[in-house]
Design a protein around this nucleic acid. Structure first.
Lengths: 207, 207
DNA sequence: CCAGGTTTTCGCCTAACGGTCGAAAACACG
DNA sequence: CGTGTTTTCGACCGTTAGGCGAAAACCTGG
């Protein structure tokens, strides 16, 4: 979600939402407050620190140190945004202000990694979804096609996925009706990454 | 590596090395400069951002936002440090200043995770080492015993380990001489994490 | 109502990976 | 030379992930 700057420096270029840190808030409270001016905060399904960007020349003529965040919104949410704000695909950004393109790249990279070795994914999906829809989300976030079969098995084996019992009607071109799934409640926050060198002999399933 | 504070606040408690950000440096240059006053910077095998700690009350009476770093030094290095500075095992910290204990816990957690799903590990090991020595390093960093057999196989299969051909003489209690290994050059920086939902059919070995 | 097309689901197969164990190798010491 | 110690290596096995194709369940058009 980018915001078109009205003033110099970098007027008419697009920048990430953000702003100064208040005296009585930490950086996460601050970014949530900044976002609340653009979009309903309750729609944020996941927020995590990304990195500090502190190149002395990143903002011309001014010393600005930025703590960048990765914030996710479920795919079924389409928040209304102000007229100077718009959504852009991360693969086709417009001309950005400052180092915000690098920040976006970093965020995309972080998202792709965490989708693979954590249970992040609940943060992208709506409450109920088909495997095809989830596959589209993962493919879009990762940048390459994933197998629907494998995606369902991997997530199920980790105990993250649960069938709701419902189905959706097929589209006009036909096809078998798709079953609906949800992420099991209780797993709706990011857990520890899947570990590969495990402690001996106490089956921990990487939890 | 902790440093005993001489002045208030939190006098005589132990704190992580650090200091203010200069006008012409980014945060990484700053922490490297701060560390250079304590230990030779060239001995740092890995430096990465950990997180921003910005609780308004983290430093009494003063607004201080800290960017915490994880810095690693190979195990064969034993840097000389000033008299007010000392090394402590992360499992047995003394009374720490501010939120520095939480920072240490976070750093330990990050280290353990990255040892498992990246090639970090070269940053802990000396140029040449035996599998037993590497096993000790991993066990200490992870907090639990790992199998020497499995450690060698996992690292070898990822193409990170390479025998030097040399061996070391056994200790006074005997035993077969241990073979020496090194991390393959070219892998001496942290690479992408091992991905579990891979792109289709182009065997990428998770590189 | 049947034939052909479409989309999803599911089981099977296989390769790779990680965890474990035990035997064999290579040394020291008495 | 026998015993004890440490390392190395092969073998086994359950789990995991990737791939494939058949079957299921729907559509549309004739």
């Amino acid at each position: 979600m980018l915001w078109e700057r009205a003033r110099e420096p970098h007027a008419h270029r697009w920048s990430l939402p953000g702003g100064g840190l208040g005296d009585d808030e930490d950086v996460e409270a601050s970014i949530r407050r900044q976002l609340a001016e653009k979009v309903d905060v309750r729609q944020l399904s996941h927020v995590e620190q990304l990195a500090v960007f502190s190149n002395p020349a990143r903002v011309p003529g001014l010393r600005v140190v930025a703590t960048a965040f990765l914030g996710l919104v479920p795919s079924h949410i389409d928040p209304v945004v102000p007229s100077d704000t718009a959504w852009y695909p991360v693969d086709a950004l417009p001309a950005t202000a400052f180092d915000h393109e690098a920040i976006c790249r970093r965020a995309r990279s972080r998202l792709a990694s965490k989708l693979s070795y954590t249970n992040l994914g609940f943060a992208l999906a709506p409450p109920e979804f088909t495997i095809s829809a989830l596959r589209s989300l993962y493919s879009a976030a990762l940048g390459y096609k994933v197998s629907a079969t494998n995606l369902q098995r991997v997530l199920s084996r980790r105990g993250l996925l649960e069938p709701t019992g419902g189905t959706v009607q097929p589209g006009p071109s036909g096809g078998r009706p798709a079953a609906l799934f949800r992420f099991v409640s209780g797993e709706m926050r990011v857990t520890d990454p899947f570990a590969v060198l495990r402690p001996p002999s106490t089956r921990s399933l990487g939890s």
